[in-house]
Nucleic acid binder design. Structure first.
Lengths: 155, 155
DNA sequence: GTAATGTCTATAGTTACTATAGAGTCAAGC
DNA sequence: GCTTGACTCTATAGTAACTATAGACATTAC
């Protein structure tokens, strides 16, 4: 199977496959006379494993480790469960942080209903000097919540 | 005030100030004889505005637009409220996506309690071929949730 | 035979910084 | 005056996981 076929079967892009190969997640496949990559069922399995892991939020480094575990199945799997646990913890923390951010954004939003001139906009004034929220008051900054990574999830 | 003083007052790093200047968010300051940047109170205000916006999750592009609005306060502020609204929507979507991911991770976690050999680990088997969840069944992939951006928020 | 599509490599761009290197400057203590 | 340490300067590369682009070659459909 050629790279485009495998991409279609796995539901990913051709460039992603080449990228994963370059990153050492996928093995280097055979090549045709024209230097085209040629894959078998095992390569597809491996790719799907990687894609599944990505859907669970694993980093490529973690997937690399999981693949090496997969390639040596006699090892003890305890660290796999620990990996998942730590992911759950990370997701929990992200959710809490986003909930926190949301309350701040909603509070900010209520400062203005739009249609005003910049000087009078309560949102702009708050961005100049936001109130300190109780749960953020520890730092001298207005709020200790971290800026979220705003890409990737929504859409 | 020198760049280090301003960084201390604003609670950010020196390199961040230089980076924001290069990105056009901060104005180019006066220079001392030794070519050191020299800032006044207005520059500090502007920097704090940028940092506050960052805490609310704005992208630098959005902050650039907010700064230009701030520099022309006679404009109608409706788009500011719309910007905040769209951010709230984005945060909502991220939370929903993470909640979804969390249920999947927990389900995955229950497949194994660790201490097994790789072959028998239910987690590893599920990563090879995960079940299709009802709310994800639309796509041929095991689950339509997106991989989260796993950096930045937790910590 | 030709045109459209697919594949190849290599390189640069994305975001918001962070890290590093190498050089110059300033303030304090001796 | 000299040294030492802290501070500043610029430029460059690295981070994560791709995405986009360019230019060349191969295959497939008609």
């Amino acid at each position: 199977m050629k790279i485009g076929d495998m991409a279609k079967k796995a539901g990913c892009k051709v460039v992603t496959i080449r990228y994963y190969e370059k990153e050492g997640l996928l093995l280097e496949p055979e090549r045709s006379d024209a230097n085209y990559r040629s894959y078998g069922a095992e390569a597809l399995d491996r790719l799907e494993f990687v894609l599944h892991c990505r859907k669970f939020g694993m980093k490529l480094d973690e997937i690399r480790a999981l693949l090496s575990f997969r390639d040596h199945p006699q090892r003890d799997c305890t660290w796999v469960t620990e990996l998942i646990d730590s992911h759950i913890g990370g997701v929990d923390a992200q959710i809490a942080s986003l909930e926190h951010l949301k309350t701040h954004l909603e509070e900010l939003r209520h400062r203005c209903e739009g249609g005003l001139v910049g000087n009078d906009c309560g949102i702009m004034r708050s961005l100049d000097a936001p109130d300190v929220c109780a749960s953020c008051a520890s730092s001298h900054a207005p709020c200790a919540h971290k800026a979220p990574v705003s890409s990737g999830l929504a859409a």
